[in-house]
Write a protein that binds this DNA or RNA. Structure first.
Length: 839
RNA sequence: GCCGAAGUGGCGGAAUUGGCAGACGCGUUAGGUUCAGGACCUAAUGUCCGCAAGGAUGUGGGGGUUCGAAUCCCCCCUUCGGCACCA
């Protein structure tokens, strides 16, 4: 009997080298068999990974390895989302160049990833801050520019004073910078945008095709896109030929308009009040409101305020003259910046009207004739459905039916039209920072904004730069960079000095993996068409909107440019939960980071992997418990010891086929449970990614195996039954090793070898199970009286109901409990229970 | 305010076509082993009553449907996430 020690350090190194030298994860671009593109969100090289990060990569690795055993050709690449502010901030703090800082971090993290035993095709590694990558990010900018999907405009944008740069709407959370939690300010700046809002409808519609995405993520995206259907109606400005358009989702209330509200930013305000007695007070109001932060202006408690402009607009449906106001609750970013106010049927308008004593006109009455609304009695707006009143030819029509009729009426009369509005704004991609891909544009006095010709790409980031942020891009101060010649006319010109949002880098990296070394094109269309969409994408829920929406947009742009033939980048998406410690997200500042290197050192990577998978269902947040790790370690040791103890036996006793006629009671039961376990693990992985219960099932099986093997240890194996028993034991251990291989690959490789097989468990097919062997001959049935368990009986599983009932009626415990009471009803659930209803 | 997810022992969690609540693991307790610590092995472990056999009770709270509810229905509470003066 040999009893080797479980030397995880040695074993893990051995098999990591083995996979590397055998190219387990290295695939070419040919699709000669079922392909499977398994993608984990590429990491930002922050320097160190903690055990919480590990979950993402470990889950991805389980999926990859499982699919390999299922016979798929698996593409599992990795790279680095390497541009971004932290590297620049670190450079400012420690005077290390961001590129050096980033490269150092990448090499540290690469070691960590390898230590976990997560397998990637490193030949495809991409790093977004390297010129051979960002050259193509710039090329993508040019493609969008050519397609009129990249444009520059002056707009009120979010400015983070701490990061000293602008931010996209998606990067502002509750008025705070998503990255540093600083309150953002509004600034009017000239900035570059991508026209993602042109794609709003498609981004919304195609969510329905994403069956493999969590509903939650789809809902979040749908909310973010925020489609609302309605009409745009033109109100004539009294005494002029000008019209002010406004958007409404309630054209049915058009006859109830009693005033109009303009957003303080509305460009028409100036000319409305110019030279009038209203000029001073109105511009005073506008300045005051615009000085407020978005939070102050838009939070629920904010009181509605406004001021009359002295002007009137004409309601085009009834020629009524209504006053034109400026109010703080009208937003320039939504619709047209002008609101037709219907106080009777809109709560905000109602509050405003009450405050400034504006008229309230009812145009919809509740359909149940019991109550009739009267303006003077109303305490809030009536926003429910009803029947049109005071609406001339539409009177008497239910308001829902009136909506399309009224819109048709607008269109016939040329006063308005059907219109759809989206909350989604264009994607602001300019950043006033150094560590990003320069926007490939040159400004020429005579030619304007000229794109850098493709041949001149990449526009290289200069090395020697003063990083201190001062509100302009640090590149602004680098003369060699700024000064250029116009590609069109050859005269001297200036480069754009803003860099791109790092979400541009990450919006297309999954394509680059197919062509990571190709310096002639961003990606090879034929290859990406073969391998994409990604079969399984795995990452954090925090990217539900940002990265995932941007990537969908870019994918659709490529599709439209006929560069690719797929409409969506990610067929299936899995969002894993966070691992928390002491109830909080792990972070250096909170000091609750669990260092994976220490765990690997003490217990090994396999233990860490197993615990990470066992801790909770993977989509749920989970609390890391250092003590809990030991349970996984114990389990692996028990498995190790059981196999190594029998190593000699397995070598000496012939590995003959299992003979069912030689089954003992115990070996038959074990054989049954081998099959049950294989089935359970397969289904848990396939159907619900319930790795925690899959592992629990294997633990149960091992507990049974340990019990079984105790009786076998000292046998001589001279008779057939004992040999058969040993081979059932062998089968059970081999099955455990196979089904655990995706979870704890190193120890399984080693044990597979110890069990006498040639190295390489991932070339072994995933085990099948024998459905016939799963059925039990005997089952334990629960016997209830009035729903309470009173006895249990072991009966043949195919027993007929009469035999069963007579067994129940002869059961001593049941007789005692019945105590002569009368049985009214007997419920029999085959193989499960009998319930006697008595009185 | 609207939409969504969740709430089960001391802890992580399991059980969903309604059928033994608490699988599996951690922790705890007792015993074994060990010079000792650790590691390991065996047993117990929801709560309450009981020496025990056994009984009662129990899945956020309250009601309901059912022979039977963690699971289905209604109302409510708490936590988390998303959206929110979006016309």
């Amino acid at each position: 009997m040999s009893n080797k020690e479980y030397n995880f350090g040695k074993i893990e190194k051995k098999w990591q080298d083995f996979w590397e030298s055998n190219g387990l994860f290295r695939v070419d671009n040919e699709c000669d068999k079922d392909k499977f593109y398994c993608l984990v969100m590429f990491p930002y090289p922050s320097g160190t990974l903690h055990v919480g990060h590990g979950r993402n990569y470990i889950i991805g690795d389980v999926v990859s390895r499982y699919k390999i055993m299922k016979g798929f050709k698996v593409l599992s690449p990795i790279g680095w989302d390497a541009f971004g502010l932290p590297a620049e901030n670190a450079a400012i703090a420690n005077s290390i160049h961001p590129s050096i800082h980033t490269r150092n971090n990448i090499s540290k993290m690469k070691v960590q990833l390898e230590r976990w035993g997560v397998g990637y095709d490193w030949d495809r590694e991409v790093t977004s801050c390297e010129p051979d990558y960002y050259k193509w990010t710039q090329w993508i900018f040019l493609k969008l520019f050519e397609s009129k999907l990249a444009y520059k405009k002056k707009a009120a944008v979010n400015w983070c004073p701490s990061c000293a740069t602008v931010l996209a709407n998606e990067q502002v959370v509750d008025d705070l910078c998503e990255r540093c939690d600083t309150r953002v300010e509004q600034k009017d700046l000239e900035q570059w945008f991508f026209s993602i809002s042109d794609y709003a409808q498609r981004l919304l519609d195609d969510l329905e095709t994403l069956d493999g995405w969590p509903e939650k993520v789809k809902t979040m995206q749908a909310n973010w896109i925020g489609r609302s259907e309605g009409a745009k109606i033109n109100f004539k400005l009294e005494g002029t030929d000008e019209t002010i358009p406004c958007f409404t989702t309630r054209p049915d209330t058009i006859f109830g308009v009693t005033f109009m509200s303009l957003a303080p930013e509305h460009p028409i305000i100036k000319e409305l009040i110019n030279g009038t007695e209203y000029e001073k007070p109105v511009s005073g109001f506008v300045d005051r409101v615009r000085g407020q932060s978005t939070i102050e202006r838009t939070s629920e408690g904010t009181v509605k305020e406004g001021i009359f402009t002295g002007r009137y607009v004409i309601n085009p449906v009834n020629d009524e003259k209504v006053p034109l106001w400026v109010s703080n609750y009208a937003l320039m970013e939504y619709g047209t910046g002008a609101v037709m106010a219907v106080p009777a049927h809109d709560q905000r308008d109602f509050e405003f009207a009450r405050k400034y004593d504006l008229p309230i006109k009812i145009v919809i009455q509740p359909s149940n004739n019991e109550t009739t609304l009267r303006p003077e009695d109303m305490e809030e707006a009536y926003v429910e459905d009803g029947v049109q009143v005071n609406s001339s030819q539409f009177d008497g029509i239910p308001n829902r039916e009136a909506i399309p009729k009224i819109i048709n009426f607008f269109e016939e009369k040329g006063i308005g039209e059907r219109n759809i509005n989206y909350r989604l704004r264009d994607w602001l991609i300019s950043r006033q920072r150094y560590w990003g891909a320069p926007i490939p544009i040159i400004y020429c006095e005579s030619c304007g904004a000229v794109p850098v010709p493709e041949n001149d790409l990449p526009v290289l980031l200069p090395d020697h730069v003063e990083f201190k942020p001062h509100g302009r891009s640090p590149l602004d101060d680098v003369d060699e960079f700024v000064n250029a010649t116009c590609p069109k006319c050859g005269s001297s010109a200036k480069r754009e000095t803003d860099t791109m949002d790092t979400f541009v880098d990450s919006s297309w990296y999954y394509l680059r993996y197919l062509s990571s070394k190709d310096n002639t094109q961003a990606f090879d269309s034929e290859d990406v068409n073969k391998w994409l969409p990604v079969d399984q994408y795995i990452g954090g829920i925090e990217h539900a909107i940002l990265h995932l929406l941007y990537s969908r947009f870019i994918t659709k742009v490529f599709f439209d440019l006929k560069l690719t033939n797929f409409n969506e980048p990610f067929r299936n998406l899995f969002t894993q939960g966070m691992i928390v410690k002491d109830g909080a997200k792990m972070s250096k500042s909170k000091g609750n980071v669990v260092n994976p290197d220490l765990i690997t050192e003490k217990y090994g990577a396999d233990t860490q992997r197993l615990y990470t998978l066992f801790i909770a269902p993977p989509q749920r947040d989970a609390e890391w418990n250092d003590r809990g790790v030991i349970g996984s370690y114990r389990f692996l040791n028990r498995l190790w010891n059981n196999i190594t103890e029998f190593e000699g036996h397995f070598k000496n006793v012939p590995d003959t086929e299992i003979k069912r006629d030689l089954f003992s009671e115990k070996s038959k039961e074990l054989y049954r449970h081998i099959n049950i376990t294989i089935k359970k693990v397969t289904e848990d992985i396939e159907k619900s990614w319930s790795f925690n219960t899959a592992i629990a099932a294997v633990m149960e099986l091992l507990n049974m195996v340990v019990d079984f093997s105790t009786g076998l240890k000292d046998k001589e194996f001279n008779d057939e039954t004992d040999i058969n028993d040993l081979n059932v034991l062998r089968l059970s251990l081999e099955s455990i090793v196979k089904v655990l291989a995706p979870f704890v690959p190193h120890i399984c490789e080693e044990l597979w070898e110890i069990l006498g097989h040639k190295p390489g468990i991932f070339s072994v097919p995933w085990p099948a199970y024998d459905e016939d062997a799963i059925a039990a001959d005997q089952v334990e049935m629960v016997i209830q009286i009035n729903g309470k368990v009173r006895s249990k009986l072991v009966v043949p599983s195919e027993i007929n109901e009469d035999d069963l009932k007579s067994l129940v009626m002869n059961d001593q415990k049941i007789i005692e409990n019945l105590d002569g009471r009368k049985i009214i009803k007997t419920i029999v659930v085959p193989r499960k229970l009998v319930n006697l209803v008595v009185r």
